[in-house]
Amino acid sequence: MSDTNIVKAGEQGVVVEFGNVIDPGVNARVHRLAQLIASDMPDEILELVPTYRSLMVYFDPQRINREALSEKIRLYLESGDQSGDRSDTATVVSIPVCYGGDFGPDLDFVASHNKLSTQEVVQIHTSRAYQVYMLGFTPGFPYLGGMSDRIAAPRLAQPRVVIPAGSVGIAGSQTGIYPIESPGGWQLIGRTPLQIFSPGSANPFLFAAGNFLRFTAIDAETFLDIRRQVESGSYLPVTGTIERGGDAACAL
């Protein structure tokens, strides 16, 4: 592809850049390339890190030089173009959330700030699937795209020192989940009983960059019930598939 750049990131990294915007279509191309490379993961490629608009490819410079690697990446890009994008699907992971109350102390603020009822905020927040553009900040933290501006809210003037794991928040027109207990300044609207990051388990991360997330509202009783299942290891995440790219984020 002519509009992609392959640039240097140290002796063992190249960055494949697909433009300079935060856009679901651009991000879909990043994930498509990541999938293509991951599907036959040559030994000399060590690790792939997809981000908003670029893919970091970590490689072993003692097994392949940068020119040969770049050529290889161009071949992947071309084969991706030829395979056609239309049937491209992504996984949607369902995230049950108990909104408001102690779990979402800022839900009232987000509602009044936007002149909505709390039910309307929850309805809007759960009405679409959000594209996981990338993970970063803390292990498992998703950068999500596609939240409605109707429920946007500024960050807290004074960040909280401790935010419990599983908290779901809003900052500006972004929404996200805190995977581990950490400080933070997002408006907290609810909490999920799911464990986003479980370092000891065979599947340590609940979702990956390139997946979609869909929030579903649950009551406190269901929260505790799911929590028990998660703790006993019997909870199975609910997943589905979605068409990726463009307006697909609104399709569910």
Partner: peptide, 10 residues
């Protein structure tokens, strides 16, 4: 701990 940077794991 390499192999998990795509998940935000340092």
């Amino acid at each position: 701990r390499t192999g998990y940077r795509a998940f935000g794991m340092p």
